[in-house]
Design a protein around this nucleic acid. Structure first.
Length: 273
DNA sequence: ACGAGCGCCTGTCGGC
DNA sequence: TGCCGACAGGCGCTCG
C-alpha cells in the first residue's frame, strides 16, 4: 500500500483528528492487544504489552514510509508495508477480521493497526535511530539540492527505477509514485542512473516532488480494496494504465517488470536511453 | 555492485 | 460453480 503521501495522510489524521474522531496527541494508552504476534518486530510480546501501558502519545511524525509515534518514554514505529492501515475509532466499533494490533486509549477510542497481508511491522524502542538511520534523505529536505541529487545519481550504476525505490537512496518512494515521476520527467525506467544529465536530474527531482505533493493534496491513492478516503488514483498518468492512451501523446501505455515490480511507462514520452 | 529469485501473507480478478 | 494462476502500494534474504 502506502507510500509517502499515504503515510503523510495518516500522520495528519492521527495528529489533527478527522470529523468526529479526535487527535491521539496527549492521549494515554490504557491497554494494548496484539492479535497477530508476528506484527511485533521488537521487543517480545510481554515486554511490549507491559512497557507501552500508561504512556502518552506526545508527537506524531513520518520518516520515509515509517510512522513515528513518540511516547512518554519510548518510540512506537510502524511500517504498513503492502496492505497495512492505521486509524482511530471508537472502542465500541466491531473488531474487523484483519485487525493485528489494538491500542486502547483513555478517551473511549482506540488506535487500530489493520493489515490483511500481515507484512506490516511494529517496533517499540527507546531510540528510533537504529531503525531509521539507514534511510536516505527525505524528498522534501532542503539539503537535497539539485546538485546533491545529481551527485547521488552519478554514484550508482543501477537502473533508475529500482534506485528511486531503494529507501537508502531516497526515503518514501514506492511503485506508484516512482512510475508517475519518471513519466512526468520523460525518463525511461531502465535508464542507468549515472547516465542522467544534470538537466534530466533536475527535472526528475522536480517531478518527484510534484507527484508526491499531488498525492498528499489528494490524501493519497485508494486502490484495490484498500480505501481510506484519498482519490489520487483518479489522477494516475501511467500506473495501472497499461494499454490506455498516454495523457500526453495518446500512445498506449506499456508495462514491463523491473526488479520484480510492475512498471508502467509511455514508450514515446519516455524513450529508451 | 548488481539483479534475479524467493519468502512472507491474504485477497481479488479473469480465464477456463 | 470451482479451480488456478497472475497479480497486488514492501522489504529482507540468499546467490551468482
Amino acid at each position: 500500500m502506502p507510500e509517502l503521501p499515504e503515510v503523510e495522510t495518516i500522520v495528519s489524521y492521527l495528529k489533527h483528528g478527522r470529523q468526529d474522531i479526535p487527535s491521539i496527541v496527549g492521549c494515554q494508552i490504557i491497554q494494548a492487544e496484539l492479535l497477530w504476534d508476528k506484527t511485533l518486530a521488537e521487543p517480545d510480546v510481554e515486554g511490549f504489552l507491559s512497557r507501552v501501558n500508561n504512556q502518552l502519545f506526545q508527537e506524531i511524525s513520518r520518516r520515509g514510509k515509517f510512522l513515528v509515534l513518540k511516547l512518554s518514554f519510548d518510540w512506537l514505529l510502524i511500517h504498513l508495508r503492502m496492505s497495512g492501515d492505521l486509524y482511530v475509532e471508537s472502542n465500541l466499533a466491531p473488531n474487523l477480521s484483519h485487525n493485528r494490533l489494538l491500542v486502547n486509549l483513555n478517551n473511549g477510542h482506540r488506535l487500530v493497526f489493520n493489515d490483511p497481508r500481515k507484512f506490516g511491522r511494529v517496533w517499540l524502542v527507546e531510540n528510533p535511530s537504529s531503525i531509521l538511520d539507514h534511510l536516505g534523505p527525505e524528498p522534501f529536505d532542503k539539503s537535497l539540492t539539485q546538485s546533491a541529487f545529481h551527485q547521488r545519481l552519478q554514484c550508482s550504476h543501477r537502473k533508475i527505477k529500482p534506485l528511486l525505490m531503494d529507501q537508502a537512496f531516497l526515503a518514501g518512494m514506492g511503485n506508484i509514485y516512482t512510475d508517475e515521476a519518471l513519466h512526468m520527467a520523460g525518463i525511461h525506467p531502465t535508464t542507468a542512473s549515472s547516465t542522467l544529465s544534470r538537466e534530466e536530474a533536475d527535472k526528475l527531482l522536480g517531478s518527484i516532488r510534484f507527484v508526491l505533493q499531488e498525492g498528499i493534496k489528494r490524501q493519497g491513492a485508494s486502490i484495490d480494496w484498500v480505501y481510506r478516503g484519498g482519490d489520487f488514483q483518479n489522477y494516475f498518468r501511467v500506473y495501472q494504465r497499461t494499454g490506455l492512451p498516454c495523457l500526453q501523446c495518446g500512445t498506449p501505455i506499456e508495462r514491463l517488470v523491473i526488479a520484480q515490480r510492475s512498471t508502467h511507462y509511455c514508450p514515446v514520452c519516455q524513450p529508451q536511453g
